[in-house]
């Protein structure tokens, strides 16, 4: 028998629940991480080189999906996101191969990373119907009023995914954004985008409404400024500015000031940006960064 000739996957963008190529028609070659010895990594695939117009379309999709996703019950969002973890588990082997290639990990380390990513997703999914109880509550005002505060999603959040941690880092920034009802436009790791594309395939097959998560692959420095300055984007996570060629996170934050986006700065001191250790146990901060507090008053009378 002749050996099976592999059917290769085309790695495309994920916008509004669909898998388009870049409107620019461009792609770029993605290679495996260099070997320890420093030999260049092998060719893996051609990924779509997303453009500012792809980002624009993704924002439209995210804005369109926001009312329904934010308006879904927290229980429903939790169920849908847990389903994502189920589908990820089914694809664990594929993720492990892609992460190993992208990050140059041993198969065992790659498997552990994928497992951590799946567990991270489950951890965040469980927060959907608990956030309001932890972060909201009754305010005992000095008057005959019922006064209650509760968290609400900020809106459309642009996310620069971490450059190095292609799956665990990605999950660690996307899940906290969408669990509370935000919708996301994610710029995948520039050089390690393939696990992100596979994640979109999990999202597309797990009841996550189209447009809730949109993923653009391509050059971070090309796409990020358009998202940072986009007036219909409510917030931006600059995690992926760390280690991104040609990206100065302060410039992005400055552009974000034009419509007072909520900005989650990259880790690090001063102007430097470092990618944190994503294996560390998370806290609420990546969720609270993209939440608004709404306070409602009503008189109490007969």
């Amino acid at each position: 028998m002749s050996p099976h000739v592999e059917v290769r996957k085309t790695y495309k963008l994920y916008i509004g629940g669909k898998f388009p190529r870049s409107e620019s028609g461009r792609s770029y070659a993605v290679h495996a991480a260099p070997s320890r010895a420093g030999r260049p990594g092998s060719f893996l695939a051609n990924a779509a080189a997303g453009s500012r117009k792809d980002a624009r379309d993704a924002v439209v999709a995210a804005r369109g999906a926001f009312p329904t996703w934010a308006g879904a019950t927290a229980y429903n969002r939790g169920q849908v996101l847990y389903r994502v973890a189920e589908v990820m588990q089914g694809r664990a082997a594929q993720f492990a191969d892609e992460v190993a290639a992208a990050e140059g990990l041993t198969p065992a380390r790659a498997r552990a990373t994928v497992e951590a990513a799946i567990d991270r997703w489950v951890w965040y999914a469980g927060w959907s119907d608990k956030l309001a109880q932890i972060l909201g509550g009754l305010n005992p005002v000095a008057g005959p009023y019922f006064d209650i505060s509760a968290p609400e999603p900020t809106g459309v959040v642009a996310v620069l995914a971490p450059q190095r941690s292609s799956l665990l880092g990605l999950v660690s920034v996307v899940a906290p954004v969408v669990v509370s009802g935000n919708t996301a436009v994610v710029v995948a790791s520039q050089d390690r985008p393939l696990p992100a594309v596979t994640l979109t395939e999990c999202l597309a097959t797990s009841d996550v409404p189209g447009g809730v998560v949109n993923v653009i692959t391509g050059r971070t420095a090309e796409i990020a400024p358009w998202l940072a300055s986009h007036r219909d984007v409510n917030a931006i996570d600059l995690a992926g500015a760390a280690g991104a060629d040609g990206v100065v996170w302060g410039d992005l934050e400055g552009a974000a000031a034009e419509n007072l986006k909520r900005v989650l700065r990259p880790a690090g001191n001063g102007a430097e940006a470092v990618e944190p250790d994503w294996t560390a146990t998370p806290d609420l901060s990546r969720m609270t960064a993209f939440l608004e507090t709404k306070t409602v008053w009503h008189p109490k009378g007969r």
Partner: peptide, 11 residues
């Protein structure tokens, strides 16, 4: 059909 009276507001 008369408009309601909100006690707190009236007081």
């Amino acid at each position: 059909a008369l408009p309601g009276v909100d006690q707190v507001g009236a007081e």
